[in-house]
Structure formats: C-alpha cells, structure tokens
C-alpha cells in the first residue's frame, strides 16, 4: 500500500509542477491544487499507514496498549487542507481579475513587471 501511495504522490507532484509551468492560467490553478494534495498525501504516508487501528482508548483502559494510527499527522493534514482551500479560493478570484484586467490567459504575456524601462 505504501508503495502504491508513494508512486501516486510522486505522480501528483510531477503533474502539479508540470501544470504550474504551463502557460495557461487555469492550468496554474489546477497545478496549485495538485501540489497541495500531493503534500497532504506525503504527510499522510511519512507518518506510517496503519489500518483499522483508530487512536481511541477503550473504556476500561487508561492508555493505548497496541500501535495505533497517528492522529497528529491527520490533524496536520486537516489544517493544511483548510489553508490550501483558502489559498486556492483566493487564487481563483485572482486569475479572474487578472483576466479581466489584461484580457489574456497566456502567462507568457504577463511579463510587464519584469521589463527594464
């Protein structure tokens, strides 16, 4: 399972970066989304995958005796998803405004701020 997920994460990173480097503006947003999904999956995998072992202490015990799924990494991912969602929402509104102001979705044409005068 780890191997499949690792390959999937790698593919998501590759796809995300490829789309971000593309000149299309909508593809940029898709790239941003894929990159944040890839990082979330990455954190999920590095915290080790355990199956069917929730971190819940049974009624008659004080501590968890056996191994359990790490709740910290899940909390991290949850936070990262929420933050990523906010950034994506901002980015989507931003490209809409950029398109309205410039009339183009070609990122290669947005080089005005770099030019020497």
């Amino acid at each position: 399972m780890e191997i499949i997920l690792s390959i999937l994460t790698g593919l998501l990173f590759a796809a995300g970066l490829f789309l971000m480097l593309h000149k299309g503006m909508v593809k940029l947003i898709l790239g941003i989304m894929m990159l944040s999904y890839a990082t979330n999956l990455f954190i999920f995998i590095v915290a080790r995958i355990t199956r069917g072992l929730p971190a819940i202490i049974p009624r008659n015990q004080d501590v968890l005796a056996n191994s359990f799924a790490d709740p910290v990494s899940q909390a991290l991912i949850l936070t990262a998803i929420v933050i990523g969602f906010g950034i994506q929402a901002f980015a989507i509104v931003l490209i809409k405004r950029v398109y309205a102001a410039t009339g183009t979705t070609n990122m290669d044409e947005l080089n005005k701020t770099d030019n020497l005068e």
């Binding site: 971000m20 944040s36 950034i87 980015a91 405004r97 701020t113």
Partner: peptide, 17 residues
C-alpha cells in the same frame, strides 16, 4: 487592482504556494 499589481500578485501567490 491595477494591471501591474495583479500581474505581480499572480506570480507572488504562485511562488508562495
């Protein structure tokens, strides 16, 4: 939201993501 501000912000947002 002037044109150059929006252009620059798009790059700024992307690099920070």
């Amino acid at each position: 939201a002037s044109r150059s501000q929006l252009e620059a912000s798009l790059k700024y947002v992307t690099i920070n993501v």
